[in-house]
Amino acid sequence: MSRIQDCFARLGEQQRKALIPYITAGDPTLEVTVPAMHAMVEAGADVIELGVPFSDPMADGPVIQKACERALRAGTSLTRVLEMVGQFRRDNDTTPVVLMGYLNPVEIMGYARFADACVAAGVDGVLLVDLPPEECEDVAPLFRERGIDLIFLIAPTTTDARIRSIAAAASGYLYYVSVKGVTGSASLDVNEVAARVETIRNLAQLPIGVGFGIKDAQSAQAVSRVSDGVVVGSVLVSQAAEHEQHPEKIAPAMAAILADMRAAMDKP
């Protein structure tokens, strides 16, 4: 069983929901990321989505665009991000790590080489924003053979037929994007999310994480009631911006936000 399956199975038994933080690797320095990952686990994170910075993050709002710029200025590359995961794994062998980013850095590294490097580093899943299932038929087996989960997005605009084909290509969990827009944009409508998650549940067997528009403990709690997991990104990443000059404050600030969310989500 993969770390991701294991994680959701364990949470299911405990009747708890997954808290899934996203941070951009190497933002604002290469050194902050691994300690921040550990601090987030300590604060209650179940799965970590580690963002691979890209020069042209088309699906992201200003907060993550700027995070990418800071991370790239600090010298972050896909190779460096894989090294960070390897370093994280020295002290943590249970928390799943998903690399999230855009296709081009992977394209240039080469798919087989990247998949091998994921295994070596201890990466559990890969979410490539601009790689829909239709375009990944050739490369998907490279990940499947190595036990790396391919995680795909489902959007408010995704048709039922597409949900079925996405679910067939995906493993680990499905990531439901709760709003039409870029990361960190509008607030979500919980009732709408609940209805959509119900639809996805009827068409797919995988756990469903919900992201985009989750900003605080209250929205995290509300979304956790209607899904299997809550993805939190921009609100954490904005801590890296706020404390850019005092990077030692970043991990505690991220942890504090997650601890509040965890407490709210675990309330009976």
Partner: peptide, 20 residues
């Protein structure tokens, strides 16, 4: 049919735009 010119072209966008 899928918008490919040999290995080039295609439709590499985030899911929200696929329906559009």
């Amino acid at each position: 049919q899928r918008g490919h010119f040999g290995q080039f072209g295609g439709r590499f966008v985030s899911e929200t735009l696929m329906a559009a």
